[in-house]
């Protein structure tokens, strides 16, 4: 096909592209995918029985704040990797801040616990939580991958990781509706692992799913 013929066929459909289209696509994907994950939490796992009382406690909210801040970091990166001419990634290490805060809280908890109890505190209860967060992140990741069909990521493992980070963190935030854990140590290890798993899965899937 000649270049002229290709151009003729391409310009048959030239819909307007408003200014904030990229941002809108990404946010809608987060909302749509998040809604599916919410349904999975509500009907698959079930909201925690003590939600009424828990909503007035601090742990309920700082758990959500932790994961939501990780989601915000992921979103900042996702918006940047959507463009092909992004040369320098800004705020690339922002996610270290919530991790540091949570890490500090863990240190405080360990400090107030006798050391012979530390291993038990870290290992128990079971570690299914990270895997559940990983699975819950799938609808959000899929929705973002769809949104990216009109965007142009040039570093695919990085873009996949950004999508994985925001998907995992959104999933972990919604997972808070079900999970009854209050110990900072638990939250730090399980929730962070879940988000990290989703980020790594995204980095691996990126080159396969986001290629254009």
């Amino acid at each position: 096909m000649s270049h002229e013929a290709l151009i003729r066929s391409l310009v048959k459909q030239v819909p307007p592209v408003p200014r904030n289209t990229a941002r809108r696509r990404i946010v809608l994907a987060l909302l749509g995918g998040g809604a599916i994950t919410l349904v999975l939490v509500l009907f698959g796992l079930g909201v925690r029985a003590d939600i009424g009382a828990a909503a007035f406690t601090a742990p309920f909210w700082y758990k959500a704040a932790y994961t939501a801040s990780l989601a915000a970091c992921g979103l900042i990166l996702t918006l940047q990797v959507a463009r092909p001419d992004t040369t320098r990634l800004r705020w690339a290490w922002l996610w270290a801040a919530p991790l540091a805060v949570m890490g500090a809280m863990c240190a405080l908890e360990l400090a107030s616990t006798p050391s012979w109890k530390w291993a038990a505190r870290i290992m128990y209860p079971p570690w299914s939580c990270p895997l559940i967060v990983l699975m819950l992140s799938a609808p959000v990741f899929a929705a973002l991958a769809l949104a990216f069909r009109r965007l142009a990521p040039t570093n695919l493992p990085l873009a996949g990781a950004a999508l994985g980070l925001v998907s995992g963190a959104v999933a972990a935030t919604l997972y808070c509706l079900y999970c009854e854990a209050v110990s900072p140590l638990y939250i730090f290890t399980r929730y962070t692992s879940g988000v990290a798993l989703a980020t790594m899965a995204g980095a691996i899937l990126g080159p396969r799913i986001l290629r254009w």
Partner: peptide
Amino acid sequence: TLIAVHNRRASYDRDRVLSAWIFSI
């Protein structure tokens, strides 16, 4: 590249240099 430029126009930021966007694609 022309097809990608056409399909992925949403990834262009109007406040940025166009040539950088084109050539990065």
